[in-house]
Each structure stands twice: as C-alpha cells, then as structure tokens.
Computed example of a mutant assay.
Amino acid sequence: MNIKSSINSFLTIFLSCVFYLMSTSTLKAQVYQQTAQKSDFWEKVRFGGGLGLNFGNNFTNINIAPSAIYQVNEYFAAGIGLTGSYVKQKNYYDSYLYGASLITLFNPLPEIQLSAELEQLRVNNTYTQFTPKIEDDFWNTALFLGAGYHLQNITIGVRYNVLFKERNNVYSEAFMPFVRVYF
C-alpha cells in the first residue's frame, strides 16, 4: 500500500465518520421535533477528542483524534475513537498512522478518573535518508491504562502503554501525559 492510498483511505474513513455523526445529529433533531420525546440514549452521549499541530525546523506533526463516549452512569463510560496522524522530518522520514480505539472510563470518585484504551493503528513509515528509501508498514496494538484528575469536562493525567515496543517506532515512551475533554 503506497502513501497516497493510505492517506486517501484515512481521509475516506475519517470523513465518513464525520458525515455519519453529523447526519445522526440531524436525524436526532428531526425525530425529536416530530415525537416531542427525548431520547435517553442521546442525552448520555458525549463527544470530544484531540487535535495536535507541531511545526519546527523541517518538522511537521499533525494529529486528529475525535471520539465519542456513552455515559452509562456517574461512575462508568465507554466509547470509540478514531486517530489519524502525519509526521514528517525533512530528509529523514514520513509517517502516516490511522486507526481506531475502544475507550472505557471509570470515576471511583468525582475527581479521579481511571481509563483503559485499546488502540489499533495502521503504521506507514518511510525512511527517506537511505538510498533506496525504506518502507515499514505494519499494524500496531496499544493498551493504555491511565489515571487522571477530573474536573467537570476535563481530565489531566498520565497513561501507560502496557504493550509498548520501542522497536515499532510508533510511540517514543510507554508513559504519556494526556488532556481529555468531553462535552
């Protein structure tokens, strides 16, 4: 699979999900107006995710990670997320990552949030500093266990990838700080 088709696949999946979420919201509004009854399910769905942009001297890193969770009760939530990333170090490498994750959140106390996230990524790395260039394409599975301080819609904490493998060139460390926001 070449890089252009990987990008096109990621964009197709990402845009399909965005249009699905938008059409679902529109349909929900129409049904609500017609029946004048609230759907308990949609009252408990929260949306969030992450967006990252890093630019430097011959370096670019762009991340998009939308997600949605269902708040089962005041203690437990579960949901799904999508991830897309592009990283380029000029004259060294290009990297495209895209995938999905399953997310669970547990609040034993209102201020404490524990999390588990199973993530499956397709990784397409091209090392351009070599002649000929080297392409390294593979699937990577990560299982993040985390803990954070939770205040209203925001959680700040740290998570640990129990399946971390340094040789995969996906994540530089097993421990990662995070900021999680759901509305």
Rank of each mutant, 00 (worst) to 15 (best):
S85G: 06
G84W: 02
Y86W: 05
G99E: 06
L102V: 08
A68T: 06
S101Y: 06
I62S: 04
N57P: 13
A36N: 15
F76T: 03
I112H: 09
Y98G: 08
Y86N: 01
L82I: 07
S67P: 08
F59M: 08
G84R: 03
Y96N: 13
L97Y: 07
G50E: 14
A68M: 11
N91D: 15
T83C: 10
E43D: 13
G48W: 01
Q71M: 05
K88I: 00
T60I: 12
I69C: 04
N61M: 06
N63F: 09
A65I: 10
T104V: 10
Y70F: 09
Q37C: 10
I103T: 01
N54T: 13
V45E: 08
G84H: 04
I103L: 10
P110Q: 04
K44E: 10
Y92M: 06
A100C: 08
P66M: 01
A78T: 12
K44M: 08
F106D: 08
V45F: 05
Y93H: 02
W42D: 12
D40N: 14
N57E: 14
D40T: 14
A65T: 15
G99F: 03
K38E: 14
N54V: 11
Y92N: 10
G52E: 10
D94V: 05
G84S: 07
K38Y: 13
T83L: 12
P66R: 00
R46W: 00
N61K: 12
G56C: 11
Q71V: 15
G50I: 09
N57A: 13
N107Y: 09
A68E: 02
G50R: 12
G52V: 01
G48Q: 05
Q71L: 01
Y92I: 11
G50Y: 13
G49T: 01
G50D: 14
E43G: 15
L105R: 08
L109T: 00
R46M: 01
